[in-house]
Design a protein around this nucleic acid. Structure first.
Length: 404
RNA sequence: GGAGGGGUGCCGGAGUGGUUAAUCGGAACAGUCUGUAAAACUGUCGCCCUGACGGGCUACGCAGGUUCGAACCCUGCCCCCUCCA
């Protein structure tokens, strides 16, 4: 079958183990594993209560892909049991229990996005319920007796909350143990995730050792800052770019990134070589390169990865035309207008604006034009085929129709 | 079992009887500028009528009440949260 790559140049190793990587425990052991020729089992878990993947997650998925390309096996775990506990974050300690159908649906959604980056053919999907579904109280006691409260409190988040007199649910203490047990069940060689997963990964490592398995390596990827350029990309902060978003949306969001985050994005999300990145960075600092051009390159690269080269070219064209040149897009939505009807009403009806008050406000702000002429008052003359422009990039074509 | 805090506009969060469609921040939208859907700056940001001036209506968990007048006071109900044991 697939050949497993065992000979690496220093450069290749550096790319695999440094680029976009935050920490590896234990790096030397991982290097040995890679060179041993063993087909490694790479564990990645996810919580089916949050099925959307964004670029922040993509950093890790790209790593999985890279390991697949040198012959290794990804094992994706659907955390249908741990999802009921909620990963201890302090913010939300109680989560609604999801129905079985809901979990299934979320899992499908997640996987559809996951496999945009990761190779499905080299992935084994496992559900926690395969083993936890049969767990008895005796099993729970056996598992929990392997750890002490002090060990669990070593986790930074628990520790903080403990000392701040904030609640820690008993089930939350269970979370790392369950996640660790997954590693035992699938005999993971390496577990992948963000830096915030370190504690859970280490619990898995210990548990495997106790049971007589070779402890897994912990592979933690770097954090991506979100659109605001300050906080980490996360769904709850709303500063994310979803893997599932349409091409022009991804492209546009990349273009709105703050300049200072550009290189980091290249670093974490593209294959542009380190030397070239360093060079680009120098040019940027020296003002030799226009950040916009670089952003376009980044946007094209990312859209290509997620939607293919054609979509990327199209998104690029669309952006240049609509946003840079402020021309009409190739396709303009049409709205039906009855003869003599106030066009404002038609715009509201078509959902172009939220309310008549809003369109009035926009007119006052000088944001509306018809056939290139700015509208000063609410009296708008138009004819069949007129192009109404609202703001910088909302266009609509008037179609006059009789009836209703 | 005991003690206490709170539910306000898309979100966060002021306001504790009139001058409050409701300070402020964020998001969003628009305008100016620009190398960019970056940044910066300015403005808008409940709904309806009006070209505009202006006017009307609805809103501060829910339901009542007090008052000339309530997000703010009272009563009941619902819901969140924290601490002690």
């Amino acid at each position: 079958m697939d050949k497993i790559k065992t000979d690496f140049t220093d450069k290749e190793l550096r790319y695999l183990l440094k680029r976009g990587v935050s920490e590896i425990i234990v790096e030397q052991e991982l290097v040995q594993l890679l060179k041993s020729g063993k087909k490694l089992r790479l564990k990645e878990g996810f919580d089916p209560s949050t099925p959307d993947i964004h670029l922040g997650h993509m950093v890790g998925l790209r790593k999985l892909r890279q390991f697949q390309e040198i012959g290794h096996q990804v094992v994706l775990i659907v955390g249908d049991w741990t999802a009921q506990i909620g990963d201890p974050s302090g913010a939300s300690i109680t989560r609604p229990m999801l129905s079985a159908e809901q979990v299934k649906e979320n899992a499908d959604t997640y996987m559809r996005q996951f496999f945009k980056v990761v190779d499905r053919a080299k992935t084994e999907v496992r559900w926690q319920s395969e083993w936890f579904g049969k767990f008895s109280l005796a099993d729970v006691i056996r598992l929990t007796s392997k750890f002490t409260v002090a060990q669990m409190l070593a986790r930074e988040d628990f520790n903080n909350r403990f000392h701040a007199n904030k609640p820690i649910a008993v089930t939350e203490l269970l979370y790392p143990m369950l996640q660790g047990y997954d590693s035992v069940m699938i005999q993971a060689d390496v577990e992948f995730g963000g830096q915030d997963q370190k504690f859970n990964f280490l619990v898995g490592r210990e548990l495997q050792a106790m049971i007589g398995q070779k402890p897994q390596q912990c592979f933690m990827t770097g954090l991506l800052v979100g659109l605001d350029g300050v906080q980490k990309m996360s769904k709850s902060l709303g500063n994310y770019i979803g893997v599932d978003e349409p091409p022009h949306e991804i492209y546009g969001k990349v273009m709105s990134l703050s300049d200072s985050t550009l290189i980091r994005y290249f670093d974490l999300l593209t294959d542009v070589p380190d030397e070239e990145l360093a060079e680009l960075n120098r040019e940027l600092a020296g003002g030799k390169t226009n950040p916009m051009e670089l952003k376009k390159r980044l946007a094209r690269d990312l859209v290509t990865q997620l939607h293919g080269a054609d979509a990327a070219a199209q998104a690029n064209y669309h952006f240049t035309r609509v946003f840079q040149k402020r021309e009409m897009p190739e396709e303009v939505e049409e709205i039906k207008v009855n003869p003599g009807e106030d066009i404002r009403d038609a715009l509201v009806k078509a959902g172009m604006v939220k309310s008549k008050s809003e369109i009035n406000r926009l007119i006052q702000q000088g944001a509306v034009s018809i056939d290139g002429a700015k509208i000063e008052s609410a009296i708008m003359s138009y004819r069949d085929g007129s192009i109404v422009k609202i703001g910088k990039h909302r266009f609509v074509k008037v179609v006059i129709t009789e009836g209703d």
